[in-house]
Design a binder for these strands. Structure first.
Length: 840
DNA sequence: AATGTTAGAGTTTTT
DNA sequence: CTCTAACATT
């Protein structure tokens, strides 16, 4: 029995499958230390500090480097985060730097949190003045502090990817841009790409007419964002970079301030981020602080979004790096797993060169399994999984099933579901991306910034209040004519449409006044009810979940205020070189004075001169935009983890299954055309392998349902690139039936090659080679006139059960077989339609 | 304005 | 196959 997507989703909702529901949202980050400024213990300089115990020589060398530029090549599982945190702690403890002089930047909020958590656990330090966060978070903080210089409104809003796309769509409509020639998605990609390369419209080279037009649209988009007081993710970076570049005073201030700049996952930085680093630190000739870049070129898997491994070489050259340390001791995996990873990645030419080693034993061999179908592959995974849990005592949450693309999860989910194995799927909608949450946030954003047309359009008629497409068009024309926001253009619309629009605007304006001085919680609750959102969803019979999520939004806001403060991302804290705040300010309005103060950001003025602070609401909206919401919060359930290989980066598990190791899938067909693409896919495989601590399982299927068609796949070249000695090839159990699959659950077994084409492919090797294949096996596509069905053999049909083939006639799509089913009699079946599996 | 129909597309993902 | 978005219909 297969479950439809909807059924799966429904099942998850009902909690049959744990995880993946709204529960996964929370703010677990620990409180910032609120202790006084005790960062400076008595300066110590000897190396027998407790901090350094347990570090291996390379790690210790990295931690105790002098204040000079350095590159740490940190292999998977080599204690990278430990080095980063210990380095910071060591610098602080030995009095070489004050918290205000530290800048540590990561890519994800999760990594930033982890850094902070582990750091505060190490040292009773005051987080005051430390800049630890994501690139975007820090840029936001910076722009909030210098919004005037950056030419932004004080309460500028951040567009996420969805918002950006709808802004572009709106723009295209307004300027009658042919969306066939210029699909909004493509424009979005173009604009984001330009910004990642640090290019404004005027910087982009118009190679051809099409590009020229795109540049024009890019410019229009920029104008629109500026007019509306919003910035997209790329803009946060780019504008920060430009301000540093163009304003000598600001640049010098930060260069003097940050004595130590630490960069995590350096191989994932894009051009602009690297340029930003150069700007905020300064090259050696410009006497800035010391940069400690930590990265692993072998784990660079984000080229598709602008990551540029070349930054590592550029860094070494431009910063005249004299310290390069390789962390090659792996503390995670047994050597069979590690050897596999090393052997695989050695096939890449473009490498800085690194070889992981471990003092652990060989461990179990890496198991490789070939199955006939994706379905059978999933069955095998579930079976092995049971063995791991029941037989070998593995904890389910310590087992991961990885795949190259998310679509692959479905088959596996179905099997897990049928077997009653709790599982949890990573990826998918994040909390702040849900439609109802975005609606609520749009109202809130309008309170902050009535010029935000994207938000205006999102909720002007949601819940429906009789404002149709025509009225909106009229309004957009009026706004364009007047050069004003939609909000302000409403007064120029007359008639019924005008009255409705005026009603909406009045509602927003009233809400704004009404909630002035309220706490964040009160504001949100008022907005949720006055806007009609709650009523709307209450009327909807399927709105219960949405209401729940809206309630969760209130909770999120509450915990934002009380637990996280207004977040380190909210505002910048102007400080002097020693990290001492330049201004003290009263707690901002609407806050419980007894609430723990966790981060200065939240009491700090964003404007050092006027002492103005960011409102709690503005801070929360920023938080919502920069942190899409953990959908990965620990459910506490003992559930198997399902995720894409990309999503697994940075995680580790006792046992890992890597599925779908097939040419075209992994490596993905879209990456196979060029060499660079294949190398990145190989790095991806490397990442996948190195996730495993004790057990590693690799599998591939001969046929797979993809886009509704059965596709035939040769096994992945990556399998041929593993060291034979570390592997154990498992002979597939043929076609399922009675072949000793545990509890003998025979239901819906091995539907075989479903859909069109042949049934069981005939090229299935019985024992896939013990020897390494120098060249990949002959692709089966053409070589299979044999559907494998001939007179005399036994076949299995999903409806009719097992039967004996009596005759076969016709070729290709016309092929038919006469089958005698004991229970249903003799049938003629079209092989292109019937679901037949060969039974041995 | 709500609901049904059809065409088209379909890696990887964070901010 | 399965999801989405745009279009058409009531």
């Amino acid at each position: 029995m297969e479950l439809s997507r909807n059924e799966l989703i429904q099942a998850r909702r009902l909690g049959v499958i744990r995880g993946a529901s709204a529960e996964g949202f929370g703010h677990a980050s620990p409180a910032f230390s609120t202790m006084g400024a005790m960062y400076l213990e008595s300066p110590v300089s000897d190396h027998s500090l407790p901090l350094l115990t347990g570090l291996n020589p390379e790690q210790e060398a990295a931690v105790t480097l002098p204040a000079e530029h350095a590159l740490i090549l940190a292999g998977a599982g080599s204690g990278k985060t430990r080095v980063l945190t210990t380095r910071i702690a060591w610098l602080l403890q030995t009095g070489q730097v004050s918290p205000g002089g530290v800048l540590a930047v990561t890519f994800t909020n999760k990594a930033a949190k982890e850094l902070l958590t582990r750091l505060t656990a190490m040292l009773p330090l005051n987080a005051r003045g430390m800049w630890i966060g994501t690139f975007h978070g820090l840029c936001n903080r910076f722009l909030r502090a210098h919004y005037k210089l950056a030419n932004l409104p004080q309460s500028f809003q951040i567009l996420d990817t969805q918002d950006q796309l709808s802004a572009i769509k709106r723009l295209c409509k307004q300027f009658n841009i042919d969306d066939e020639r210029f699909p909004p998605k493509q424009l979005q990609w173009f604009i984001a790409g330009c910004k990642e390369d640090g290019e404004r419209p005027s910087d982009v080279v118009a190679r051809d007419e099409e590009t020229r037009k795109k540049i024009e649209i890019y410019q229009l988009y920029e104008d629109q964002c500026q007019r509306e007081g919003v910035v997209d993710f790329g803009e946060l970076m780019l504008r920060s970079y430009e301000l540093l570049r163009d304003n000598d005073a600001v640049r010098e201030h930060y260069r003097r301030r940050f004595r130590h700049v630490l960069i995590d996952e350096f191989q994932d930085t894009n051009r602009l981020q690297y340029a930003w680093i150069k700007m905020i630190v300064g090259l050696p000739s410009e006497s800035g602080g010391a940069v400690l870049a930590v990265g692993d070129d072998d784990q660079s898997i984000y080229a598709f979004r602008g990551a540029r491994v070349g930054n590592m070489e550029d860094f070494v050259r431009e910063f005249e790096v004299r310290h390069q340390i390789k962390l090659e001791e792996n503390y995670r995996s047994y050597s069979n797993i590690l050897d596999s990873a090393n052997h695989l990645i050695s096939h890449n030419k473009k490498r800085l060169g690194k070889n992981l080693r471990t003092s652990q034993g060989a461990g179990e061999p890496v198991r490789v399994y070939e199955s006939a179908t994706d379905f059978a592959e999933a069955e095998w995974v579930v079976e092995e999984l049971r063995q791991l849990v029941r037989g070998d005592g593995f904890s389910r949450s310590e087992i991961a099933i990885l795949y190259r693309s998310n679509a692959q999860s479905r088959v596996i989910e179905t099997q897990l579901f049928n077997a009653g194995v709790p599982y949890r799927v990573y990826g998918g909608l994040r909390f702040f991306e849900r439609a109802e949450i975005k609606h609520a946030l749009a109202y809130l954003r309008l309170l902050e910034n009535s010029r935000d047309d994207t938000s205006f359009l999102r909720v002007v008629n949601f819940p429906p209040r009789g404002i149709g497409a025509r009225s909106i068009e009229q309004l957009q024309d009026a706004a364009r004519a007047a050069g004003s926001s939609l909000h302000d253009a409403v007064t120029s619309i007359s008639g019924k449409a005008g009255a409705n629009l005026a009603g909406f605007v009045a509602q927003i304006d009233v809400l704004r006044e009404q909630t002035a001085g309220s706490t964040l919680r009160e504001i949100i609750e008022t907005v949720l009810h006055s806007s009609g959102l709650v009523d709307h969803y209450r009327a909807d019979k399927e709105g219960a979940d949405r209401i729940e999520n809206l309630e969760e939004l209130v909770n999120a806001a509450e915990s934002f205020v009380t637990q996280e403060g207004f977040g380190r991302d909210a505002v910048a804290l102007p400080v002097d070189e020693h990290g001492t705040p330049l201004t003290q300010s009263p707690v901002s309005q609407g806050l419980d004075p007894d609430a723990p103060v966790l981060n200065d950001a939240f009491v700090a003025p964003i404007d050092a001169e006027t002492g103005e602070t960011l409102s709690p609401l503005a801070a929360f909206l920023t938080h919502a935009a920069l942190e899409a919401g953990d959908n990965q919060a620990q459910a506490g359930q003992e559930a198997v983890q399902l995720m894409s290989v990309h999503a697994s980066k940075g995680l580790e598990f006792d046992a890992v299954f890597i599925t779908g190791l097939e040419e075209g899938l992994f490596p993905h067909e879209n990456s196979m055309s060029d060499y660079e693409g294949v190398e990145e896919e190989r790095r991806l495989m490397y990442v996948a392998i190195t996730r495993a601590r004790k057990r590693l399982y690799l599998s591939h299927a001969q046929t797979r349902m993809l886009h509704g068609k059965t596709r035939y796949h040769v096994r992945s070249r990556f399998l041929e690139e593993l060291p034979e000695g570390a592997l154990k090839w498992i002979t597939p159990k043929r076609s399922g039936f009675g072949s000793g699959f545990g509890s003998g659950s025979g239901a819906g077994f091995n539907a075989g090659a479903r859909g069109t084409g042949m049934a069981q492919p005939a090229w299935g090797r019985s024992g896939i080679g013990v020897e390494t294949f120098a060249s990949p096996p002959v692709p089966p596509q053409k070589a299979a006139p044999s559907h494998g069905i001939r007179a005399g053999i036994k076949v299995f049909h999903t409806k009719f059960g097992e039967g004996k083939v009596q005759a076969v006639e016709g070729v290709g799509d016309d092929a038919r077989a006469q089958v005698n089913f004991p229970r249903h009699g003799v049938k003629w079946l079209a092989l292109s339609v019937a679901k037949l599996t060969v039974v041995d």
